[in-house]
Simulated assay, not measured.
Amino acid sequence: MIRTLLAAGAALCTLALAACGDTGGTGQARNGVWAAGSSTVFPFTTRVAETFSRNQGGATPRVEALGTGGGIQAFCQGIGPATPDVANASRRMTASEFDMCAQNGVTEIIELQIGYDGIVVATARSGASFDLRLQDMYLALAKEVPVNGALAVNPATQWSQINSALPAQRIQVYGPPPTSGTRDAFLELGMGPGAERLPELAALKASDEDRFEAVSHTLREDGLWIDAGENDNAILQTLTRTPGAVGVFGYSFLEQNRDAVKAETIDGIAPSVETIADGSYPLARSLFIYVKKAHIGVIPGLQEFVNEFVSDASAGRGGYLEDRGLIPLQPEELARQRQIAQSGTAMARPE
């Protein structure tokens, strides 16, 4: 169970990079860990929080699902108890986010890869099956597509108009909002590569890469792509209630709900532990947590919480996060992440 842990107490005067008495404007100190961000990482962090609290005692960490972008935004607001200690992310922090952190005094950030996940395109178990190609997803979901050699507003309303092998049913896709790392990864791993397979857009990328990225990363706005919020469970429920609907969400949610929904293949490859871990599934991605180094040793339990997150019992093969749907790192890679956590090695600015 997750409890809010903004407890009144003595001012956090020992915070290394903050002025004495600075509590981030709240007038309160904290006696427990605060993590915020990705809805995909949320169930994993929640599980770690439960185990940490049971083993360590004391306050249960506060965990919030704000989306990757929202979590990093909150994390980067500064040093002090009014800001999260940990940002959960379903993609790597960007250079602009790193710079925002630095501008606000968050100058040492520990980046930890916790495992892998895949983005699935799913339907209700009772629905028609799809064998999607990356270019099919682009042509179905992009705001602009090639029409007679030029870019135009997407005219397609049925999947079979994109590819005659797909079902003759309305395009109706429920997916994550712009603040979500899942959406960022879907655009990067699915829409961009799908666009590149079309000659007109391949030529655009060669001549104007910025324009190509803007076009390939812009989803249609005519109601056939529906932002479904940060709660992936809401998408799952929609699929079971809406005949013909398609959903985009993390593989871990699929694993927990295979009785109700099924994943469609992408380029003939189904998402699985094996295909995501080896990278053969086109929409495979890495998951991260970011830790504010200045809060370690100040926020009670933060170092221990991070250690628990990257322990073999948690993130290792056969660990309790694998039961929740996390696809573990290779043992040697997890050991490297554990060393980063224990040494407090700060990340470099992303390229």
Score class of each variant (00 low, 15 high):
L224Y: 09
W225Q: 04
D99G: 01
P193Y: 00
A7D: 10
E108C: 02
G194D: 04
G32N: 11
S311P: 15
A59Q: 15
T182R: 01
A102M: 08
V153W: 06
N257W: 02
P146I: 02
F253H: 12
S286G: 11
T107S: 13
F98T: 00
D184V: 14
E108I: 02
V41F: 00
S314Q: 00
G21A: 05
E111H: 10
D227N: 14
G58V: 04
F52V: 14
G190T: 10
L302G: 13
G149M: 01
I266K: 02
H295G: 05
V261C: 04
F186K: 01
S207L: 10
I119P: 09
V120K: 06
A294G: 05
Q113M: 14
G9K: 01
R211T: 13
Q158A: 11
E64W: 03
S216P: 14
V153Y: 04
L239S: 10
T123A: 12
T23F: 00
E255R: 15
L201I: 04
I226L: 10
T14C: 12
A202P: 06
A124C: 00
I114S: 09
Q158R: 11
T242R: 12
V291M: 08
V41E: 06
I226F: 08
G127H: 11
F249Y: 10
D259S: 12
S38R: 12
L236H: 02
T60K: 03
V273S: 07
R47L: 14
R324D: 14
R338C: 14
G115N: 01
L326Y: 07
G325T: 10
S129T: 15
